[in-house]
């Protein structure tokens, strides 16, 4: 199929799809007037019944904790896929560098960038953990905090060099942390079954709403997810940096 035929085919089907969109969206409530019984119930029970002041976290890790388990494992398998795909095999042909602009060198990192990255490093790690452990109180949780935490190795790369990143974030250690985070979710769920409850049923005392210890199991699940997300993102970063370093050497 040539490009022109393909584009014409796209235009016809896109018009049909746009019509379907119009038809479907016309049945939705007007913007700003959304109403859902489920949302009303969650907003009403998240503090009195679940002792979690962040209703979003209540949905993710308490009310529909099982779905989040599935979402977490999409992340886990994607990271696994990246690592497998980027692994170097012996028979692999060396990269073809013909498309690179000749005589164009990568400029060295400026001192200003190094200093700012160094200054931001410690606050980023503290802020990341703060977001992870306050998930049940204020906006945040394992997913958001984990992403913030994983920007720390990137800052380290900016202010130092790749060997330093490898020294501080040894891939073996990060792999273990990521696996522990992912396994922790299942272990917590399994422990509930062992204690006579249902999978991921919140059996721990719920505590006082608005405090760090509220939400029963939710802070522990958040901790696991935080480890998993930050570990996964760091591994992806390390794998890509490794690729970059090998290209520079060759």
């Amino acid at each position: 199929m040539t490009r022109r035929i393909r584009l014409k085919f796209f235009l016809v089907s896109a018009a049909a799809l746009a019509l379907c969109f119009f038809w479907g969206y016309a049945g939705l409530p007007a913007f700003g007037h959304g109403s859902s019984i489920y949302a009303d119930i969650v907003n009403a029970i998240s503090v009195p019944q679940r002792h979690i002041t962040d209703a979003v976290t209540a949905v993710n890790f308490d009310i529909r904790g099982f779905d989040t388990l599935g979402e977490e494992f999409i992340l886990f398998t994607s990271v696994l896929g990246v690592i497998l795909l980027m692994r170097r095999t012996k028979d692999e042909p060396a990269g073809d560098h013909e498309d690179k602009a000749p005589g164009r060198k990568v400029p060295p990192v400026s001192d200003a960038v190094r200093v700012i990255a160094l200054l931001l490093l410690a606050p980023t790690i503290v802020f990341g953990w703060y977001i992870v452990v306050h998930g049940q109180v204020t906006p945040g949780g394992g997913f958001q905090g984990g992403v913030i935490l994983s920007s720390a190795p990137l800052l380290l790369y900016l202010c130092g060099s790749y060997p330093k990143v490898r020294g501080a974030a040894a891939p073996r250690l990060i792999e273990i942390a990521e696996a522990l985070g992912a396994a922790g979710y299942i272990v917590i769920g399994g422990a509930c079954v062992a204690l006579g409850g249902m999978f991921l049923e919140n059996l721990l005392p719920l505590g006082k709403a608005g405090t760090l210890t509220s939400g029963g199991m939710v802070p522990f699940i958040n901790l696991g997810v935080g480890l998993e997300v930050s570990g996964g993102f760091t591994l992806i970063l390390l794998v890509y940096l490794e690729e970059l370093m090998e290209e520079k050497e060759s």
Binding site: G34, S36, Y38, A39, V42, N43, S46, A55, V56, T57, A58, V59, N60, R64, T68, E71, E72, G141, F143, Q144
Partner: peptide, 11 residues
């Protein structure tokens, strides 16, 4: 606002 759709979004 609806917390359910926000929870879906964030993951």
């Amino acid at each position: 606002v609806d917390p359910v759709v926000q929870a879906l979004m964030l993951t």
